[in-house]
Amino acid sequence: MTGSASGLGRIGVVTFPGSLDDGDAQRAVRLAGGEPVALWHRDKNLHQVDAVVLPGGFSYGDYLRCGAIARFSPVMEPLLEQARAGMPVLGICNGFQVLCESHLLPGALTRNDHLHFVCRDQKLRVERTDTAWTSDYTHGQEITVPLKNGEGGYVADEHTLDALEAEGRVVFRYVGGNPNGSRRDIAGITNEAGNVVGLMPHPEHAVETLTGPTTDGLGFFTSALKRLVTA
């Protein structure tokens, strides 16, 4: 891994036109002890970052499908290449949608089954603790982070859902009520290698008590930074 002059792990946060939570994601990286690096959607390289966060928001106005146009941004080309080579990538909400559209993760996110936009604090169960982004949690740990989406219903065909379960690739499941009709209460998943994680809820909004319901989200970023140090 590429070290920075400061010795801190460098985590890039991509800003697409319409991204909203890039600032909070950068702040979460900083609070976790890392060096946030702003990446622009038109960047053709990743500026030697060690990991990347695709933040929440409404990239390209959610036109066509959520994440469908962002998926073809210039920055996605080096990102896809390095993600396949093992670089940690976290997609939050719209970022999760981008990861599914780019086929780094299987399935798709569809309109919430009740058609309402959901904005609430959501309890999740952590079911995988050996991914790049979840090693600071314990198996079965319940965390509470904000959830806010209109198209957060995770869908995939039965064969894919069965494979995700069998391979232990469901990382987070909704607890205390399914907020959007996601199949099998799935809130977040990972790829086969465990370096790419996507979820609809927002850990970057739960990193300090002043503004978040908990600090439960900080573990995503400390997990990735630890992985970078030991890599």
Binding site: T110, N112, D113, L115
Partner: peptide, 11 residues
């Protein structure tokens, strides 16, 4: 066909 279409249902 197997994907739920809540918008169509609302219509």
């Amino acid at each position: 066909p197997e994907i739920l279409d809540p918008q169509g249902q609302a219509v």
